[in-house]
Every structure is written in C-alpha cells, then in structure tokens.
C-alpha cells in the first residue's frame, strides 16, 4: 500500500516546552489511524499541524508526496471534523454542508448532486432546513461528518468527534464512521483519548505521551505486547497490574488473574467492585496493588487473605528504570509457578 501521509521530525514548542517532540509516522492510503493519548499529550496539536491550523517549529508533513508545511489549510486537500462540530449556527443544515463547495465555487449542479448523495449517506433528509440549534448531538455530529465528506477530500482529520455524545450513541457512531470510511476509501487520522474508540475503529494506533510516540502498532499489539509501562497502564480496563519484583516490573492483566485454593500469591483484599458481568477485586501485595477481574458477582470480606495466580505466558516484563519492555526470561518470575 502506498504511503499517503508522512510526518517526520515534527515538533512544536510552547514557551520552550515541547508539546510535540520530534514525532514521525506514516499513514497509508485508505488507512484509519488513531492518535491516542491522555489530555495534553500533543495529539490535537499534531492534528492541527497536519491540518495547517498550527505551524510546526520543525519537521515535514507530506500529503500524497508533497510537503504541505507552507501551504494554507484550504490548499492541503483535506477535510476536518471538530470536537465541538464547529457548525455555523446561523446557517441551515443544507448551507452548512454546502459551505465549502460554495467557498470553492463548485458548479451548482455538482453541488446538488454531491449534497443529495451525502445527505443519503448520513441520513439527514428531514433536517436539511433546520438550524444547528434545533438538532440533537447525534444529528449535529452527522452534519459535521457530511460537511467533511462532501468535500471529496481524500484525507479526513477527526478531532475527538464523538466525545460530546452519550455512550450508546457513541457506539453507534463508531461503527457508522468506520463503515463510511471503508466505503469511501478515506484516509483518516482520528484523535481520541478513548482507548475503546481507538481499539475498535483503527487499523493502526499511535499512542502519544508527553509529545512523543510511546508505541505505533496494530491495536492487538497494544494489548498483547505493550512496549512500555505507560502503554501497559494506559490500555485495558482496569489497567495492567505492575508489580515490582527484584530488578524488574512484572505486568499482568487483571483479567488473567484468578483466585486459587493453594500455590498462589498471598494478598490482602481491600475492595470488591461489582460491575455486572464481573467483579474487580483490589488487593494489597507488599507495597503494591493488584487487581483481579473475576467473572460474576464475588463477595470477599475486606481484609481477608486470598491466593492469586496467573499463567506464566500472560506475564509481561519491564525494565524498572526506563519502563521499557524486556524479553521474558526462560524461568518465570514468581516462585509459585515452579510449585
């Protein structure tokens, strides 16, 4: 697959503090890439620099083979969906969608044709003459989506487009956006802080932390092979347990931990958090906390001592100095595996 968007050595400083620090990645044509990370990690700044709404201090942004750093946003042949939707409040839905085509002086008949096809795609037929103030969150989201699709730009940037919707609607829109993207062959760069969105929609995830890339990979590797302790503790709900042991950090996911009768790690139960399909048990082991995710409803009295155990192949090891992943040793870390 040909590379469509290439970002190399991109940096942006605010008052000498790097918001984006020398990041590089590539996006192939038709690929859906998620920029994931906690707030303040530089993901939105990166997106704005790709869009041209912010100027990078260093680095190159190539779209379809040409460097666009010095081009204005309108000349980069891309579309954008904003977190707040950025709909024009005084214009009807129809005028909002057609705004870009009118600004670019697209021919009237072409405007009509594209409007009709886009409106059908996002199902906005009955709302064309309404003002944005009369729309629900989901409908506003569709208008924003329609406005970006109607431009026929091959690259679409999305800045947390679902963060203002409720959980149920968000799930629906996730699959809808993904379907549209595949159908139209769009290349999408999607900014989000929600790991579920990134995991379920993206072909590739780029996880950012403090302006740098922690890991860029396919979604399953974030779960199965986190490269750093940051990734390990960011992905998964609840996050991975990190237990200091000798000179390493041992990582094990709560869903891989089970309670056993004998041959386990002695821990003291602190809390049982029932969540419907599962119960999350928080327990103390020496100075660290271990969470175990057990199916069904479990009630264990606080302060009681239970034995925890997991399979050696579910263990991850990290360097306790720099947090980087280290290859698993030949022997397991915890003595109970030998027993």
């Amino acid at each position: 697959m040909p590379c469509f968007l290439r970002v190399s050595g991109l940096s942006r400083y605010y008052d000498n503090v790097a918001a984006v620090d020398d990041i590089s990645f590539e996006v192939n044509k038709g690929e859906f890439v998620a920029l994931l990370g906690p707030s303040g990690c530089g993901k939105s700044t990166t997106l704005k620099m790709i869009a041209g709404l912010e100027q990078p201090d260093e680095g190159i942004i190539e779209i379809d083979g040409s460097n666009v750093v010095d081009k204005s946003p309108g000349k980069r042949n891309l579309s954008m969906v904003f977190q707040s939707y950025a709909l024009f409040p005084h214009l009807s839905v129809k005028e909002n969608i057609l705004f870009g085509l009118k600004a670019r002086k697209v021919h009237k008949t072409e405007q009509k044709k594209r409007l009709a096809s886009v409106v059908e795609m996002v199902d906005l037929g009955q709302h064309l003459n309404k003002k944005p103030g009369q729309l629900s969150g989901g409908q506003s989201q569709r208008v924003a989506l329609a406005r970006s699709i109607v431009s026929n730009a091959p690259l679409c940037l999305m800045d947390e487009p679902l963060s203002n919707l409720d959980t149920k609607l968000r799930a629906d829109m996730r699959s809808e956006i993904r379907t549209l993207q595949k159908k139209l062959g769009l290349t999408v760069v999607y900014v989000t802080h929600d790991q579920i969105e990134a995991m379920s929609m993206a072909d590739k995830i780029i996880l950012l932390n403090q302006g740098s890339i922690e890991q860029a990979d396919v979604p399953e590797n974030f779960y199965n092979k986190p490269l750093t302790t940051f990734v390990a503790s960011f992905i998964g709900h609840p996050p991975m347990n990190l237990i200091p042991h000798n000179d390493v950090l041992l990582g094990v996911r709560p869903e891989h931990v089970s309670i056993v009768e004998d041959n386990g790690l002695d821990v003291t139960v602190r809390e049982c958090d029932y969540q419907g399909s599962e119960t999350i048990i928080t327990a103390n082991y020496k100075d660290s906390l271990i969470r175990a995710c057990l199916p069904g409803k479990r009630t264990i009295p606080d302060g009681s001592v239970v034995k925890l155990r997991w399979k050696p192949e579910t263990e991850h090891l990290f360097n306790n100095k720099n947090g980087h992943r280290v290859p698993a040793g030949t022997t397991s870390v915890f003595p109970f595996h030998q027993l």
Partner: peptide, 22 residues
C-alpha cells in the same frame, strides 16, 4: 467560536467570504 474560522479555513474560504458568510 474560533473553530468556526478553522472550519472555514479548511474549506479554503477567503477573508471576504468568511466575513460575509460567518
């Protein structure tokens, strides 16, 4: 909202269009 101007910039709207329509 400054995002309205960003949205217009993405669509390559010139200054006069932005003033007249937004």
């Amino acid at each position: 909202d400054s995002n309205l101007y960003h949205a217009a910039a993405i669509e390559n709207a010139n200054k006069w269009t932005v003033f007249r329509r937004i």
